[in-house]
Design a protein around this nucleic acid. Sequence first.
DNA 1: GAGGGGTTTGGGAACGTTCTTAAGAACGTT
DNA 2: AACGTTCTTAAGAACGTTCCCAAACCCCTC
Lengths: 337, 337
Amino acid sequence: MAETPKSNLQLVAAKAGVSVSSVSRVLNGGSASPELARKVREAAAELGYVPHASARTMRTGRTDQITLAVADVGNPVYVQMMRTVTGIVAKAGYRLVVSSTGSDPQAQIDLVTSLNRGYADGLLMSPLRITEDLIEAMRSSRLPIVVIGTLPADVALDNVRADSATGIGLAVEHLVAQGRRRIALVNGPVDTVPGSARLAGYLAAVERFGLATSSELQVTATAFTYRAGRKATAALLGQASPDAIIGANDLLAVAALKELAAAGTRVPEDVAVVGMDDTDAAELATPSLTSVDLGSAKRAKAAAKLLIRRIQEPGAPVSRIVIPPALSVRESTGGPA
Amino acid sequence: MAETPKSNLQLVAAKAGVSVSSVSRVLNGGSASPELARKVREAAAELGYVPHASARTMRTGRTDQITLAVADVGNPVYVQMMRTVTGIVAKAGYRLVVSSTGSDPQAQIDLVTSLNRGYADGLLMSPLRITEDLIEAMRSSRLPIVVIGTLPADVALDNVRADSATGIGLAVEHLVAQGRRRIALVNGPVDTVPGSARLAGYLAAVERFGLATSSELQVTATAFTYRAGRKATAALLGQASPDAIIGANDLLAVAALKELAAAGTRVPEDVAVVGMDDTDAAELATPSLTSVDLGSAKRAKAAAKLLIRRIQEPGAPVSRIVIPPALSVRESTGGPA
DNA sequence: GAGGGGTTTGGGAACGTTCTTAAGAACGTT
DNA sequence: AACGTTCTTAAGAACGTTCCCAAACCCCTC
């Protein structure tokens, strides 16, 4: 009913009988006489004035928007990050633009260049695959970028990373302590950043504990998804008889759980299962899933704060933060319900 | 390395030796001589020119952004919607701004008024609680709004809704066909739109099939979350012995599954369980969860298309779309693995 | 009462784009 | 050769805001 007509400073100024600059001053908390302030506020309220975002951006250069780019908005680990980021970013007065790039490096490069349109004040991104071109694009961006994930050592960009190797080490240690010797890995694509990190971590841990590194114990799913995990686990069970399975993320581990159940194998009695990322899916699984917490929420939080700091203080030194992993033990390795 | 200096039309024009308007014309596909076009494109490429989003908005009134407001970005049903919406919106050339309002009506009202800042071309919102004030705010908004969810009959807003009542009817029918008679409901808060709809649907279906409507068979969780679902189910099992449980969403149903398992009750032999929304969580659960597909993906898709149409054609007649439900039968009611 | 310091207000440019309007060039027609 | 038509290009206003700077005013002091 109460149609909101579009209003601007000029209309408010006319209604209050003052100048445009005075209205702006009052509304932005500048000094003004009580009388003037009263008139301006009255007029503004009466007209339902709201400042125009783009006009303000035009003048100040700030958009009050931050972009978050992830590969897949459906993946639980990104959901968790998104949830954390929305909170922090909103509290700091920013809106969140969410971009789903898929795993295609070109789409990510396009995103970085499109950022130069100036629709956001900064970018949070968690690239699944990193190419030279992507790094080059990020480097030459005019806007601050914080990367959630591992970058080559020589890239001077703010960066919050997990420690997959140590994380897998925790999982293997936990399994070895239970007497498991044939520990299998259901990995995602190894040409991705997490895929390669997890493979390396697995190999290192297996060697450290003196376990057999049989290639039959390693399978690679075509993606970090449930479906792909079912297939990969089926292949694994066809070629080896592990007494433990580590999934490279929770979805792959849940897929392993389901595939084991379908084969009539008991978890954890016959085979123990460990996931990674410690997302909601781990707690909801049956049996509940032991999972390596790679600190996705903490990483997201740290990255968001880092980005906000850099926006406010562009000259700050480049930070590289590593979030230490932790193990959440649940039923799938004999932990409590 | 290749630092991108900020460039604008004026710089491009100067470099190409032509006027600013000519550059704009060429870059927006207006008519121009081949010679002029060549010079302009060369200069633009050399300077790495990208148009400034806010300046363009300022002039055209378009922001190429759409806002999606949901109560909780972590809830699987909203995740599913978000995934669908990102795809459609990106394909149509829009960016997606995601806003997590919580279930607080005031936060939603603030969002609607802040929309008048003009940072987006339209709003997709799925309100958990609807108040008169919220409806009033949506009505008087200058920008198009499409509501995903049920609205009072007299509100003339584009609207895509589920049919919870029929959906619950499907679930009850399916359970009755198996000989279940004591069908319980684990609902979410009844002062929410989905909560009240599901309660009404449950009562209607129970009556239609001539089942006893004992109040011991109805419990209400404090939120649509897993934790709340565990508590509510525990309470239910303490006060009644149902032979079937319907969860008002998948999280509540998964919680029921886990609570039943903890109590040593077999599913589906002793108690059958049905969820609602048919999210990924249903397929991942053990046993996999029969769930009422309320068409969340379809609703999100329809709503996004509706909004885009209305942005392009503001005078179009108001649409109200109802997505019919379907039942996905899985193990928790004796279906296939 | 004139000058000076301080405070309050207003004028107007600038941000980068698009688009209307008009000027100029090229060309054909009478 | 004069005129009209069409096509190409340029000039400049406008979108709504902020902020620099100058004008106007008040009060105090000498």
